[in-house]
Amino acid sequence: MADAPTSYEKAYEELEAIMNDLQEDRISVDDLTAKVKRAAELITFCSDMLRSTEQEVAGIVKKLGH
């Protein structure tokens, strides 16, 4: 599992990269599940972060970091 993104920009960049790979058909069927799972995690992460208090943010980062 990759680390938690350090910023919204990083998360967005990673999502863009996954999206591009998907569109270009560069992801093998084996990697597809992992990539889609990662994308879902990033989206959830960002969405949660937007609605979290400062204290909660620390918790989210910790959770995703593992």
Partner: peptide, 17 residues
């Protein structure tokens, strides 16, 4: 705006998949 971008990814990903 940012979150609509995220939604865009969700929609785009579903479409691509």
């Amino acid at each position: 705006f940012f979150e609509s971008g995220l939604n865009g990814f969700v929609v785009g990903m579903l479409r691509v998949l």
